[in-house]
Design a binder for these strands. Structure first.
Lengths: 223, 223
DNA sequence: CGGATAATTGATCTCAGTCAATCAACGTGG
DNA sequence: CCACGTTGATTGACTGAGATCAATTATCCG
């Protein structure tokens, strides 16, 4: 939604400062250790969270026992919104996290009074929707190395850290459950990308993206 | 977001009557023939559409020439929202369509004045986000017949037509591009589901869902 | 009725999953 | 400080589900 055509903020900062302030007024700052559950799928959705620092993932457990990761969330991301009063997914911290915890009632009240927040929230949701659709496109791409290449580029963007050794905040299994692949396929894809000199594995959690263009062409999603 | 916990409207009618009225006041009713482009990916996003009747699909063209369908849209669905002033996908009618065309500027103005609309819009976007995540989960499920079974159940729900012969508004190729499969795999999956007495193909576009429980267990997504 | 398009069926091959083993990294306790 | 055990990551061999290519059948619309 082109509410702000030219001076658009960075993709992940769609909640304007005013909106952030409005939210801060009704929220509580919480600090959480790594690998802590924020909320569980099916629980009554009482609060939403606005991440300040750290990384979070959300997942759903399927009937067959598979775990499907629906999103990785980073600073300025919002999570916990749902339509029918119950959380859709389970949310877990990947690292120590600092976040605003916002009671849903307070959010609703603020929303009905403060139009500024509305616009920011709508923009944020549009972005998240776009992200989810992009995720779906990645999953529809059948080639494993294409999914992994796309994932690395997406992560680089999401982390806003062009810091050369890209730091993965999640384990291989998390990437696998996000991309719909096995951990072994993730390894093989990384091996392939490395052998093609597109990346360099410094450590299991540190990857240098050597050739962004090559990665983009591997991902098949660009231009 | 549990803005309305108990008396929640049907999933596809999250825009309240008030919100619908607010939108109707600033919009123009348009009628379009089948297989007409509403807008193209990359164009300036000037209008959003609220579907009254008919079916629409949105897709993105990838670098490798593949077409990925991001959504099928039906009455009460909203499309055309984007974050940065340009449409993300191309939208095409599947059938003759009646829709409200809403200038984005008018929507923004209304949004900053009418909190009712805000809440409705946020709810709608939450629903769409959930739908996109569900789509991603379907794509991550590797079994072709599982995807097709899930798709049929989803479509039945989306069409709000328990009318026994389920009418598919889209072609096999559309289903394939939505589920990340080949047309042949769609056929084979339907054949399998039919041989298991879960469905019955009346015609290419008419399918009777004989055993919803069996379909659900094939889909593997339910509880 | 006839041509064009869509849908189905068949045969083959490729790629990712699975099972299994190896290797590396890290933290613990002796 | 180092041996050890546990966990996570990688690599290898094999299998199976879906893509692809090709041919046939069905359906739509003039």
């Amino acid at each position: 939604m082109p509410f702000e055509k030219s001076p658009h903020p960075a993709a992940r900062e769609l909640l304007t400062e005013q909106a952030q302030d409005a939210l801060a007024g009704i929220s509580e700052l919480v600090r959480l250790p790594a690998h802590q559950v924020l909320y569980r799928q099916g629980e009554s959705a009482d609060c939403v969270y606005n991440i300040v620092g750290g990384a979070v993932l959300t997942y759903e457990l399927l009937a067959n026992g598979n775990r499907h990761i629906t999103a990785f969330l980073f600073p300025n991301d919002l999570l916990g919104l749902s339509t029918h009063g119950a959380y859709i997914a389970t949310a877990e911290t990947l690292s120590p996290v600092v976040a605003y915890r916002i009671p849903i009632d307070a959010l609703r009240d603020t929303l009905t009074h403060d139009p500024t927040l509305s616009v920011g929230l709508v923009l944020k949701l549009c972005h998240d929707l776009r992200d989810a659709q992009h995720h779906a496109i990645t999953l529809a791409e059948n080639a494993a190395h294409a999914r992994v290449a796309g994932f690395l580029l997406w992560l680089r963007d999401a982390l806003k850290s062009p810091a050369d050794p890209l730091c993965l905040p999640m384990a291989r299994q998390d990437i696998a459950d996000y991309l719909g692949l096995s951990v072994e396929s993730i390894s093989r894809a990384l091996h392939l990308l490395e052998s093609e000199a597109a990346i360099l594995r410094v450590g299991p959690r540190q990857i240098r993206l050597l050739d962004l263009d090559k990665l983009a062409s591997f991902s098949g999603l660009d231009a």
